[in-house]
Each structure stands twice: as structure tokens, then as C-alpha cells.
Design a protein around this nucleic acid. Structure first.
Lengths: 227, 227
DNA sequence: GCAAAAGTGTTGTTTGTACACCCATGT
DNA sequence: ACATGGGTGTACAAACAACACTTTTGC
């Protein structure tokens, strides 16, 4: 892409800031929207929880770096991943070196993720609604991701990336409720999902527990669709 | 902000790409949505039209660079300005140096802009609907900006940044029609604008031309508001 | 038979869309 | 008087929100 215009005919290149790619990896666990955090070792912000991220590798595109980060942390690929925002304020503490953070958000099924147990970083899921004070301005980044996800949920099928191929309508509704953080009416919810053509019945049923079996549904398309 | 996480404990800093800030400056001239373009002198893409942009100055935030660029090109400040997207693909032609472009879009009143006449870059307005092949991937950037503007128009008051303090409902409607590229019903349009509380009558009227004078309206707030 | 979740329809309200005529002014 | 753009209301359709009971299963 590289829409890079260099306009200063002279010596160019003010400073060349470090470019980091940071990924907000979101999932729904039970009825809770969760973010993947790692524990920072070194300063700045040593001991603080933070979003996973890293510097761009040589010759790597931004999207590729985000995909790589996601794969590193969770072992997951082929999920919904979207650029969020680029933060370019100056660090507060350490003025020494300039940093720019290109942030992404990803939606995964938590039971697909293989978090690295061995790691010094202790990657773990944290409820997006009860986060501690994070490193840098990562709290703002998470809030931004949650806002974006909430609005995308209303006019796209991104939820597909949070659910297995087959799921019940109740599961789907739980995902929506966890993300939007409000309860929804079962009948209206079903009507809407079906009439939008987002999902379709698979014909099979899930028998489990002491109650009526539930129809299993699939997303009409497991790729991003704007309604 | 600087949500910069450095995760490679080792020597860090893959490569440090050039960071350019590029601004899509949009306005409505008569019934046409227009973009400000400059003519590139030097290669790459010498002689092509391009979006105004430049490298980040030392110690400058991204937003500040965008504001500065806008001021340089148009003399205008205090208008709607929003980050769009960060493009980080590798340049096609010149592989030598890596570039990242953080793009913004701005909305201004064209009659407020003082384009630099002297300049070798011949800054000028071009209809967003009939653009030539631009330098780099700037065509994509403009399309992206127009899409974003269209959707923002539906749920925010951003149009304030394209109109003078006082304006008629017909002027406002022309702005909407130019951006959305479709005609709208006068009565429905008025009802909606007023019932959303976006604008309010100013009490004064504009007498001009051989017809009934038009009520002048003002935006309830001349700053970004989400409806 | 009872507990637990699945499934299902109707009504009222709000929102959006289509559509045609009269009004105030300048010439 | 006529040309020009400014201003107004109503009727239909679609989308959305509120609401409660019956079904199928396991124990």
C-alpha cells in the first residue's frame, strides 16, 4: 500500500519512531467478554499486565505482523482480525525513544487458543469489564476495541469468529449479551438473526442436559459480511 | 499514548520504517464532493496527483502532524479531523525504503481554504467522483475516506465542518446529497434534521434572489456529536 | 411429575418513505 | 403575472420492542 508521500524535498526523515503492532485478542468465556493479557517483565511498566505486541519485522506488512502475533500467542489463525487505530502520542515516562502503536483486534474461540504455559509472560484471559491498570495506555486501547466490536456486532456477522461451526441460538445470544453487556429478548433475537439471513438451521440437534434438545445453527458465511 | 510493547527481549527494532502522515482534505463545492490534491514533482510517481502528506517531525504526535499538514495546505484549523487507517504495505516500485502511512481525513469549507498559489505542487480541488490515477495507493485512501464520511454523516453531526455558522436547509441538504451521491426528499430531510436536534433555526432569514427568503439555521453544536 | 432450557406469535410503537401543493419574493 | 426556490402534512410500510406460555427432555 505505502501511501508514503515525502513532502520535504530536503533531507527528510524527521525521526524514525519504533513501530509496534499490538493486538487486542477478544473472546467470550461463558457470559464474559475477555481479553488476552500478558505480564510484562522489564521496565517500563515492569510487572504490569499489557496487551501482546511487538515490533514490526523487517519486510513485514502491518497485517502480517498482527497475524503473526496472534498465532504466537494463541496458535490460532484464520479468525476475524481488523485494524483498530494507531496511537502516536509520546510516552509519558520514558522520553528517550519515540513509539507508535498500530493496534488490531481479533476475535477467537477461547477453547481453540493454546496459550503458552511455559512463558514468563503468563498469558491469560481477563474480563474486559474488570481490568486492572494496564501498561502504557492499553486500557484505552481495550475500551476502543470493545466499542468497535459492539458496533460491528450490530451490522456485520463478526460473531462467527467467536463460535464453533455449529452452535445453538442460546449460545449465540449469550455471545451477543456478553459483548453488548445487556440482556436481550429471546424471541426478538431469534427472529432478527434468522430474518437477516445471518444463520441457518443445520438440521441436527444437540441433545444434552435434562431438557428439550436444541437445534444447531451455522453461520450462512464464515467470513466477514456487512449486512 | 504510546502503547508500545517491546516483546523481543533481545536487540529489538526490526527495521524502523518511515512514518508519513497523509491527509484526505474533503470539501463540498456546489454539488460536488472534492478532495485536495497536489502534483508530485520528484519520483517515485513524479507528475502524478497525490494526497498531501509528510514525515512526522521529531517529537510530534500523529494528530499534531495531521493538523500541521492541514494548516500548511489550506490555512485552516479547528475543523473536523479524524484518523482513518494506517497503511503498511510495502511499496511496489521502490523497495529500498519501507514506509507506513497514517492517514487522516478532514472536512473543511472550501471558501475558507487559502491554497498556496505559489507552490510547485499546484494544490487544487478535484471531484472525488472523477479522480485520475493517483500516486501510491492514494485512490484507495480516498475511497476509504469517502466511505467513512458517508457512514459518519448518518449518525453524527460532522457536516457542521463543511458549512458556515449560518446556512439554509437547502444548503445543508446539498451537502448531504453531494456526499451520499443521491437525492433526498426535502420534507423528510428537514424533519429528520430538526427532530434529531442537530440544527436549530437562528431566527434570521436570508433574502437573496427572486424567491421567498430562507430561514437560516445553525448547528446545535459545532463540535463532533454522535447521535 | 418436576426441573431446565428450547421453542414459538401477537400487538403496539416508532421510524422511515413516498408524495404535491401553496408561499414570499424580485423582476 | 410569472419564475424561483422556500416551506409544509399525511398515509402507508417496515422495523423494533414488549410480553407469557407450551414443548421436550433427563432424572
Amino acid at each position: 500500500m505505502a501511501a508514503t508521500n515525502r513532502r520535504n524535498g530536503a533531507g527528510e526523515a524527521g525521526d524514525t519512531p519504533l513501530v509496534a503492532v499490538v493486538v487486542v485478542i477478544l473472546t467470550v468465556v461463558d457470559d464474559d467478554l475477555c481479553v488476552l493479557l500478558i505480564k510484562r517483565g522489564a521496565d517500563p511498566y515492569g510487572g504490569f499486565w499489557a496487551l501482546p505486541g511487538g515490533v514490526l519485522a523487517p519486510g513485514e506488512t502491518l497485517d502480517a505482523a498482527a497475524v503473526r502475533k496472534l498465532l504466537d500467542e494463541t496458535g490460532v489463525a484464520d479468525v476475524y482480525l481488523e485494524q483498530l487505530y494507531t496511537f502516536g502520542e509520546l510516552p509519558r515516562g520514558d522520553q528517550s525513544r519515540r513509539g507508535i502503536a498500530v493496534t488490531y483486534f481479533a476475535l477467537i474461540q477461547h477453547d481453540q487458543a493454546r496459550l503458552r504455559q511455559d512463558s514468563e509472560w503468563q498469558p491469560a484471559w481477563h474480563s474486559a469489564y474488570h481490568l486492572p491498570r494496564l501498561a502504557f495506555d492499553n486500557n484505552v486501547v481495550v475500551e476502543y476495541a470493545v466499542r468497535r466490536l459492539r458496533s460491528k456486532l450490530e451490522y456485520t456477522n463478526v460473531a462467527y469468529s467467536l463460535l464453533p461451526r455449529q452452535f445453538t441460538l442460546s449460545q449465540l445470544q449469550q455471545v451477543y449479551e456478553a459483548i453488548l453487556d445487556r440482556e436481550m429478548d429471546k424471541r426478538n433475537f431469534r427472529r432478527r438473526m434468522l430474518s437477516l439471513g445471518l444463520i441457518k438451521p443445520s438440521g441436527t440437534k444437540r441433545m444434552e442436559g435434562a431438557h428439550r434438545p436444541a437445534e444447531l445453527y451455522t453461520f450462512a458465511r464464515r467470513e466477514p459480511v456487512v449486512i
